[in-house]
Every structure is written in structure tokens, then in C-alpha cells.
Amino acid sequence: MNIFRLLGDLSHLLAIIILLLKIWRTRSCAGVSGKSQILFALVFTTRYLDLFTNFISMYNSAMKLIYLVCSYATVFLMYFKFKATYDSNHDTFRMEFLVVPVGGLAFLVNHDFTPLEILWTFSIYLEAVAILPQLFMISKTGEAETITSHYLFALGSYRALYIVNWVFRFYTEGFFDLIAIVAGCVQTILYCDFFYLYITKVLKGKQLTLPA
């Protein structure tokens, strides 16, 4: 564990908590893409199958459990409890356009052709593009609530910090995982235009609006 990975995990945890609290406290999931949340729940499910078979540390197991519980709780709140506030008209990105190619790629490009490894690879590839329905929804509505933009900033920062962690681990341990690194770079690049808008607008107290 290094400080970059720890900060990355905390940023990820912060993002998940911000979103869950936003939906719970405002009793509304307006402006939030339910499809992205379903994809994130799928990412954690396929990545943490070894939760009970491969104990690494209390921290590792606790975080995996928290991520799983919070992501399913968010999906539950969005599609059941506060369903009336779910903006399905703007959340129209076709998930199958992501899941099918990612599933195929996981079969073709992986470290080891075993079920657990292919599912892990699938979760890595899927996580890289899971935010697309959310970014697509914001581009359709042309704006995002400030709290949602904080959520996205924390979520985007998490994988950016992981990239720094991978550079650090490469130089200190000689360790690298090309699949995770390439997918992590794609994932972070997808946030770039949002990061620009966040820093130039939200941090100046303005509403996050996309140029129409």
C-alpha cells in the first residue's frame, strides 16, 4: 500500500458516500444516471468474487464490502425507493453497447484464461467506461447539480491517483499490470473535459453547465 493508492481508495469511497448521501438526504436521484450505477455494481460484483476466498487484509475486505453494499444500495434507492425521481428520459445510454464489447474484449485480452481472471478483466474494462452513461446524461441535460459534480470529481480523481500509484509501484517494486494501467488511463481520460469544467466553473462557485 502507498499513499497514492490510499488517497485513491479514499477518494473513491468519498465519491460513493457523496452520491448515496445526496440521494438519501434529498430523496431524489435527479441528474444521476441509474445505468452508470448499475454498471458500477456489476464492476464490483465481478471484481470482488474472491472476497471470501482470497483474504488480503482487513482493509481490503472491509473496503470491498463497503463498495458492494453502497453500490447496490444506490441502485436500490434509484430504481425502487426514489424511482419517481429517476430521470429515465435523459438516462438513455445503451448499456449493452458497453457490456457486450467489454465482455468480448475480456475474453480476448486477459492475463489468464480462467473464469475468475476473465471476470476480473471484464470488471477492469467495464469500470473504464461505466461513467459514460452519466457523462452522456449530463451532456443531454446540459448541466449537473453541484453535489453531482463533486461526486464526479472524486470518482475521476480516484483512478487518476491509481495511475500515480502504478507509476510509483513500477519504480519501487518493478510491478505493473498493463491491463489495469491501460484501462485506468482510458477511464481517467474520459473525465478530462469534466475536470476542466469542474476546475474552471464549480470551483469558482458557478453551476456546472455544458456549452449547449
Binding site: 473513491h12 488480503i56 487484509s57 481490503n60 505493473f176 499490470d177 498493463l178
Partner: peptide, 10 residues
């Protein structure tokens, strides 16, 4: 190449 070590990341 990633040995089992890569699975210690979240």
C-alpha cells in the same frame, strides 16, 4: 506481467 500481487488492489 501481473502475478497474484495485482489483486491486492481494489
Amino acid at each position: 506481467v501481473s502475478d497474484d500481487d495485482s489483486k491486492d488492489e481494489l
